[in-house]
Simulated assay, not measured.
Amino acid sequence: MRVAPVGGTAVQDHVALAEIELCGELIIAASAAREERLSLESIDQVLRVAEERDTRAR
């Protein structure tokens, strides 16, 4: 069995980590909604879509 060496040689994929974080936030929001489905507006709010639009507009 090969194991990654210790010492900071692991490569991090920052895009993948950000996507995992957003998925986690969606799961939390969906579980808090209980029986209801999340609206598209709620999903956009969780994913911070408006913030991203503002950042890109600058």
Score class of each variant (00 low, 15 high):
residue 34 R to T: 09
residue 32 A to K: 14
residue 8 G to M: 03
residue 43 I to T: 07
residue 53 R to F: 12
residue 52 E to W: 08
residue 13 D to M: 11
residue 53 R to W: 11
residue 33 A to L: 12
residue 49 V to K: 10
residue 28 I to L: 08
residue 32 A to S: 09
residue 6 V to H: 09
residue 10 A to M: 05
residue 49 V to H: 07
residue 44 D to C: 02
residue 33 A to D: 10
residue 13 D to R: 14
residue 35 E to L: 03
residue 19 E to I: 13
residue 27 I to W: 04
residue 29 A to S: 03
residue 8 G to Q: 03
residue 14 H to Q: 13
residue 37 R to A: 15
residue 19 E to Y: 08
residue 56 R to Y: 12
residue 10 A to F: 02
residue 37 R to Q: 13
residue 3 V to G: 01
residue 37 R to C: 11
residue 36 E to V: 10
residue 22 L to F: 05
residue 6 V to R: 11
residue 21 E to D: 14
residue 22 L to G: 04
residue 8 G to F: 02
residue 15 V to E: 15
residue 32 A to H: 14
residue 44 D to H: 00
residue 11 V to H: 00
residue 38 L to D: 10
residue 26 L to G: 05
residue 42 S to A: 11
residue 54 D to Y: 04
residue 47 L to D: 03
residue 13 D to E: 11
residue 40 L to I: 09
residue 42 S to L: 05
residue 58 R to Y: 04
residue 25 E to P: 03
residue 25 E to K: 13
residue 17 L to F: 07
residue 25 E to A: 13
residue 55 T to S: 10
residue 40 L to K: 09
residue 11 V to L: 02
residue 35 E to A: 01
residue 23 C to G: 12
residue 2 R to S: 08
residue 35 E to S: 04
residue 27 I to S: 07
residue 18 A to Y: 02
residue 32 A to N: 13
residue 40 L to D: 13
